[in-house]
């Protein structure tokens, strides 16, 4: 009888092994643009995978533009900022689960755009 109990337990654990595939976990992604006061055009890949464009006019240099969504591991993430006034600058960041993942900035540069992109890394 004891043997059959063990057999049942082990069979159940075998089923456990076969079904222990970890689902891709959703990660909280934040696109963040700051350090600009002259205005910029932001392009970003949204939660549906579409590329959206927005014109942003900040009220001050301290204003921060943010877009938050959830993405699965391996998903493409992309955000760019193009500003008109090359005498100013811009900082573009991607945060994953509240931590800085990627960052690029431009200040008084003849290139008036910054692109940050990549994929959500696998744990």
């Amino acid at each position: 009888m004891k043997k059959y109990i063990i057999l049942t337990i082990l069979s159940l654990s075998l089923i456990g092994i076969s079904s222990c595939e970890k689902n891709d976990e959703a990660r909280k992604v934040v696109y963040q643009i700051s350090d600009n006061q002259s205005g910029f055009e932001v392009s970003y890949r949204n939660a549906s995978g579409e590329v959206k464009k927005e014109q942003v006019i900040p009220e001050s240099k301290e204003d921060v533009w943010k877009y938050t969504f959830e993405a699965r591991e391996g998903e493409i993430i992309y955000v760019s900022g193009i500003y008109d006034d090359v005498t100013t600058g811009i900082k573009v960041q991607i945060l994953l689960d509240g931590k800085l993942f990627k960052e690029k900035s431009s200040l008084y540069d003849t290139l008036n755009y910054v692109i940050v992109s990549g994929t959500v890394p696998f744990e």
């Binding site: 391996g74 493409i76 990627k102 940050v116 992109s117 990549g118 994929t119 890394p121 696998f122």
Partner: peptide, 13 residues
């Protein structure tokens, strides 16, 4: 297969 964890993945995936 993919190159999502390679340096080029922020340019071409």
């Amino acid at each position: 297969m993919d190159n999502k964890e390679r340096p080029f993945s922020d340019t071409v995936v």
